[in-house]
């Protein structure tokens, strides 16, 4: 009986290459044109962030005073010889500064999401796994942090720690990154908790318990791999928020100390020249918008690829 019952599907299943859920997800992602565009742009940004200084036509803080003076002390417009995107009023090359800004924005993405993961995942996992009192206290804590105004917290923190070693690290940027991360892990903690809570109830976890698989292994082999998809999506979609938060802070002069400039502070610096030399605002703003959109496209694509249920059968 044993062999006879399953003779049929052998033929149909055999042909297909076994690929696993990740493989399937990757195949779905590749079919999503917007996600591919987003992904390519993200790779480009990362490339610029890493190799920017070697590729940039000028050092970000080099002042081409001759050119500015020749222009009557005014910024050079875009497409000037030697300065493709022009300069600011101090003769600093805008393209080079944007490329350095990419470095800052990508670091923000990295550090903030790292902080978010390092705090959010364990807090969410602990709340879900231990449940009961631990769960209620951790969740009330996240509620309080969630309710506290983010901007106020970041400003207070950066003012308070400005003069410490920590405050000066990475031209004052590390402090801002960590501060943003400290306000953003809450969503991740909630997401992880929700994921694990529903996974904890699944029958394959019960099966593992019935087999006698130790808790540690249940978490690492059964719970986390299955929660990973939504976490990856949340991290990707969280990046634009972090980049935007940094840009906002830089716009109000919190963060990078001059002459370093992030995209946000470039917008702020260019603002007085908005009427006569709009390129000083337009190009940094374009950089911010492009980065946000590419991460969002990639994140949306990842979500559709990792959770095909959302979009119906493909």
């Amino acid at each position: 009986m044993a062999n006879r019952t399953e003779t049929l599907p052998a033929a149909t299943v055999e042909v297909r290459r076994s690929s696993g859920l990740w493989g399937d997800a990757f195949r779905r992602l590749r079919r999503n044109r917007l996600a591919i565009v987003g992904g390519v742009l993200v790779i480009l940004f990362v490339f610029i962030a890493i190799f920017g200084p070697y590729l940039a036509p000028w050092p970000y803080d080099y002042q081409d005073l001759d050119a500015v003076l020749a222009n009557g002390g005014l910024p050079l417009p875009a497409f000037s010889p030697g300065h493709f995107l022009g300069t600011d009023e101090l003769g600093r090359d805008l393209l080079s500064r944007l490329m350095d800004g990419a470095r800052i924005s990508m670091t923000v993405a990295l550090v903030v999401q790292f902080v978010v993961l390092v705090i959010g995942m364990p807090v969410g996992a602990a709340a879900a796994w231990f449940g009961g009192r631990t769960d209620s206290w951790l969740m009330r804590l996240t509620d309080v942090i969630y309710a506290y105004p983010d901007l106020l917290f970041i400003i207070l923190l950066s003012v308070a720690l400005k003069e410490t070693v920590f405050g000066k690290a990475l031209d004052g940027l590390l402090l801002v990154f960590v501060a943003i991360g400290l306000t953003s892990w809450v969503t991740m903690a909630r997401l992880v908790r929700g994921q694990l809570l529903s996974l904890k109830e699944t029958e394959f976890v019960e099966a593992a318990q019935a087999i006698g698989v130790p808790s540690k292994k249940i978490i690492s082999k059964h719970l986390l791999p299955n929660a990973l998809g939504p976490v990856i999506v949340a991290v990707t979609l969280g990046i634009p928020g972090a980049i935007l938060a940094e840009a906002t802070l830089a716009f109000i002069s919190i963060g990078a100390t001059p002459p370093r400039a992030s995209w946000g502070s470039l917008v702020a610096d260019g603002q007085p020249w908005l009427r006569s030399f709009p390129h000083l605002v337009i190009f940094p703003a374009l950089a911010i918008a492009t980065a946000l959109i590419s991460f969002t496209f990639l994140g949306d694509g990842l979500r559709d690829a990792l959770d095909p249920k959302l979009k119906g059968k493909q």
Binding site: T202, E206, I211
Partner: peptide
């Protein structure tokens, strides 16, 4: 636990999709 086991109702949620 070696001596007692369980078979579940839902053939979709009873197997870890990542394994």
């Amino acid at each position: 636990r070696r001596r007692m086991q369980i078979i579940f109702q839902d053939p979709y949620s009873s197997l870890n999709p990542r394994m």
